[in-house]
Design a protein around this nucleic acid. Structure first.
Lengths: 197, 197, 197, 197
DNA sequence: ACCGACGGGACCGCCCGTTGTT
DNA sequence: AACAACGGGCGGTCCCGTCGGT
C-alpha cells in the first residue's frame, strides 16, 4: 500500500460497506481497522475523525450507486426506457449490491433518523439527486413526446423511488430478492399504464 | 408510579419510541433512563437486559401499528375498501406516527441488517403479518367478486407494502409528509386499475 | 416458614455455605435469595446488612466446626487421644465438611487478607479458640502425666493447626481428600514421637 | 514509562500483589488503575481482559516464589539441606513476601474454590510443581543415601507443603511471623527424625 | 413477616481520538 | 505514512440497601 491515494481509497471503500451495513454507530473503528488491515494511526492520518470518514464513505457509496445508474442509462435516449432502466438497476441491488448492505440513501436515512444530521443531509441530497434524474427524464420525455404531457414528474419520482426502495427493503428484510424484482415489475407496468405517452 | 404494571408499560412505551428512532445500538440505557425518569435499578427490575426490553418495545410498537390498521378496517367488508384503508393508514404515519420514528418493521429491518437477529426475526414476522393481511384480503375479495380472479395476492402485498413503506421512508428522510400521501394515492390508483374486479 | 426464628436460622445456614465457598464479596444477595427461597425483604427483615448476615453466618460455621470437635472429644479424657481426635476431625473435613467449602476460619482468613476487618477479627478469634483448646489440652496432659512436661503447648497448637489446615487446603485445591488424611497421620506421628509423655 | 514492555511488566507486577491480597473478584480495575497509575485504555492495550491479566499476574507471582526457592537451593546438593532450605524459604514469606499477600498458590486455591477455574487450574499446576520439587529431592536423596530408602516422597511433599502453607496462613491471619517459623522448625525436626537416612 | 419496586453506584469492557516514534 | 501506547469516558450489567405495601 505504498501509494497514499490508494490507501485512502481502500479505507473509504471498506468503510463504506461497514457503515452501510451497520450504520455509523454500529461500525466501530476496530471493525474498520480489521477490514482495512490498518492500525488506527494509518486511518487517522487520512481522516480527521470517524465522521469525516463516514461522510466520504457515504459519498463513495452514492457514487457507486450513480455508476450503476449511469451504466444502465448508457445509450438509452427514450425516457420510458430510461425510467425502466432505473427500475432494473434497483431490482438488481439485493442480488448484486453496488455497496454491501444495499441502498446507502435509504440506510443512512433510516439509521440517522435521529442524530448525525451531517450524514442525514448527505442522504437527502443524494436521494434528491435520484429524484431529479427521474424528474428531468420525465420532462425530457414530455418534450420528446414519449411521456404524456400531463404527467407530474415529481410524483413519478416519488412513486418510483418509494416503490423501488421499499422493494429493496423488503428483499433485505426477508433475504429474498424477489420483492425488489416484483417492485421493479410494478414500476414497469405503472410506466406503461400511466406515464407512457 | 406506584403500580408496577403501569411502570413497566411506561418503560416499554418510552423505549419503543427511542428504539424506533435511534435503533437498538443507538438508544442507550441513559436515554431510556432520561425518557422514563427511572434509574437503572428501576428498569432492570422489570427487564433482564436491554435486548429483552427492546423485544418487548418492538412488540408494543407493532401492536400500535396493528391497532391503527384495525381501527381503519373496522366495519369495512369490501376488499378494495380495506386495501385502500391500509394505504390510508400508511399515509398518516409521517404526520401522526403510531410510534415516534415511523414504521417499526421497516426501521428494525433496516437497522438490524447486521447483528441482533432476534429483533430482525421479530421484524420479519411482523412484516409478514401485514403481508398476510393483504393477501387474505385479496383472496376474500376474489371470492366476493370484488377483486379480479387472476390477481396474485402475494404480489399485491409486495407492491403495496413496498410502495407504502418506501413512501414513509421518503417522508421521514425529507421531513415532508407528502411522499407518503403520494405513495398511498398511487396504491389507490393501482388498486382501481389492476386489482378491482 | 412460619416461625421467624426458624427462618432466620435457615438464612444463616444457607448463607454460611455460600460465604464459605465464595467469600464475602463473591456471594451476592441474589445468591442468598436463590439459596433461601426468600426475597430481599425477607432477608433484610432479619439482618441489617449483608455484613451482619455474614458475621452471623461465620459464627454459625464456626459453631458447626466446634460441634464436630465436641463430638469427637466426647468421653475422651486422655490428652493425646483428644489431640488425635482433633486431627481426625480435620481429616474428615474434605469428605464431610461441617460447612460447605471447608474450614471457615482458614477461608475467612485468607479471603479477607485485605478488607473486611470485622470478619477477619472473627476468624482470628475463632482460630485462637481452636489453638486454646489444643494448648489447654496439652497443659492438662502435662498435669496428668500424659504429655512430656517440657512440651510447649503453644507450639503444639501452631504445628497441629498449620499442618491440619494446610492439609485441608491441599485437599480442596486438588479435590483429593488424601492430603488432609496424610496431614492428620503426620500429626499423629508427631504426637506420638514428640508430645506423648 | 516509554517502553511498552516495561509498562506491561509494571502492570503485571502491581496486579500480582493486588490479586494475591484481594483475590480475582476483590481486586477491581480501579484498584489496578490506581496502583499502576494507568487508565483503562493503557491497561486494556496490554491485556484483553481482567482474567488474562490475572493469569499473567499469577504466573508472575509463582515465578517470584520459584526464584526464592532457586536462590536458597543454589549450591546445596544434599537432599536434607535442600528440603530444609525450602522450609526456610516459607518461614520468610510473612516477613519478606515474594509477592504482597503471601503464597499465591494457597491464596488462589482458597479464593477460587468456587468460580474461575482457569486460575484454580494454574494454582494446582504451580502447587504440583512445588510438590514435584520435593518428591524428586527425596528420590535423589534416597539414591545418594541421604534419605531413608523407605521414605515416601509424595507423603513428604504433602506433609511439608501442608505444614508450611498452614504456617504461612496462620502468620497472615494473626499478623505474626512466628507461626510460619514454628512450622518451618517443625518441618526441620520432621526431616531429621523421619526422613534423614 | 415477607414481598418487590426502585435508587444509586460500581463493575468490566469497549469506544474514539491523541501523541510520540519509527 | 503508518504504528501502537495510552487517555478518558460511555456502554450495559449487577450490586446492595431502602421503603411502601400486603
Amino acid at each position: 500500500m505504498r501509494d497514499p491515494e490508494r490507501t485512502r481509497e481502500h479505507i473509504v471503500r471498506q468503510a463504506a460497506g461497514l457503515f452501510n451495513r451497520r450504520g455509523f454507530a454500529g461500525a466501530s473503528l476496530a471493525d474498520i481497522m480489521a477490514a482495512t488491515g490498518l492500525q488506527k494511526g494509518g486511518i487517522y492520518g487520512h481522516f480527521r475523525s470517524k465522521e469525516e470518514l463516514a461522510l466520504e464513505a457515504f459519498d463513495f457509496a452514492v457514487r457507486q450507486m450513480g455508476d450503476r445508474f449511469a451504466a444502465v442509462l448508457e445509450g438509452k435516449p427514450n425516457a420510458i426506457d430510461r425510467l425502466r432502466a432505473i427500475a432494473g438497476a434497483f431490482a438488481e441491488i439485493p442480488e448484486n449490491p453496488p455497496v454491501p448492505g444495499g441502498c446507502p440513501m435509504m440506510n443512512a436515512g433510516v439509521e440517522n433518523d435521529d442524530g448525525n444530521p451531517a450524514i442525514r443531509d448527505r442522504a437527502r441530497t443524494a436521494m434528491e439527486g435520484l429524484r431529479t434524474l427521474i424528474r428531468q427524464t420525465v420532462r425530457k420525455g414530455i418534450a420528446r413526446g414519449e411521456v404524456r404531457p400531463d404527467v407530474d414528474g415529481d410524483r413519478v419520482a416519488t412513486v418510483m423511488v418509494a416503490t423501488l426502495e421499499g422493494g429493496v427493503m423488503l428483499s433485505q428484510l426477508y433475504g429474498d430478492p424477489r420483492h425488489a424484482r416484483v417492485a421493479a415489475e410494478h414500476v414497469g407496468e405503472y410506466l406503461d399504464g400511466s406515464v407512457r405517452g
